[in-house]
Computed example of a mutant assay.
Amino acid sequence: MYLIRKANLIDLPTLLEFEQSLIQAERPMDVTIKEGKISYYDIAAFIKDPMSEVLLIEHGNEIVASGYAQIKKDRHYLKHDLQGYLGFMYVSEDHRGKGLNKRIVDNLILWCKEKGVNEIRLAVYQENPSAIKAYEKAGFSKHLITMRLDASDFEG
């Protein structure tokens, strides 16, 4: 049985391991990520922040999935003032394909709606088609493409 719950600081060691696994999985998709041990998030701050919600899923006594939502002020020229930003979506390998990421995403969207936030965004690598498909199944649509150039290779 899978139980979804709010994360607490006692969960931090496992969540930090998830973060490193996520970074390792994303490094081949992003040449701009530094080598060595890095961190994407301040997970402890997210857990403490009333404008953030960190959820996890347990199977037995093992944490097997995670994700967060953070309510942020958005740009002044948009129709909405706030957005819910989703991130830190991770499901341990043995538990993938069981709809756990969707459960977390659905619960985070509901949390945002409870806070009066209807604009929900997330970022996903173009080279991660399975994640794109999962988010599209959850109702997300592609909106903006970020492009980059390493000018050290530019000879124009």
Rank of each mutant, 00 (worst) to 15 (best):
L55W: 04
R103W: 00
V31K: 12
I43S: 00
D106W: 06
A45Y: 12
H143P: 04
D11W: 05
K37S: 11
L12Q: 08
A25S: 14
Y90D: 03
D74H: 14
R96T: 04
N118F: 13
M29W: 11
L149P: 01
S21E: 14
I71N: 06
H95E: 05
D30N: 15
I23V: 15
R148Y: 15
A123Q: 11
D42S: 15
A134G: 04
K115W: 06
I43Q: 02
E17H: 12
R5K: 15
N101M: 12
D30H: 13
D11Q: 07
G36S: 07
C112E: 00
A45E: 14
R75L: 14
Q20D: 14
A25M: 14
D81I: 10
R27F: 03
Y41F: 12
R27D: 02
K102A: 12
Y135T: 06
I38C: 12
K115L: 00
G139C: 05
I109E: 06
A134T: 00
K48N: 11
A134I: 05
A25R: 10
L86W: 04
G84P: 05
K72T: 06
E26M: 14
L12P: 07
I33C: 06
E114T: 08
Y90G: 05
Y85Q: 08
T14V: 14
I71L: 12
G84Q: 06
R96M: 08
Y85T: 03
G84N: 02
W111C: 02
G156M: 09
I10L: 12
A65G: 09
W111L: 01
V31Y: 11
K79A: 11
R75M: 15
L122H: 11
Q24Y: 09
G97I: 04
M147F: 13
Y77C: 10
G84A: 13
T32P: 03
K72W: 06
E136Y: 03
L16M: 11
T146D: 14
M89G: 07
Y90C: 00
M29A: 13
F18H: 08
Y135Q: 06
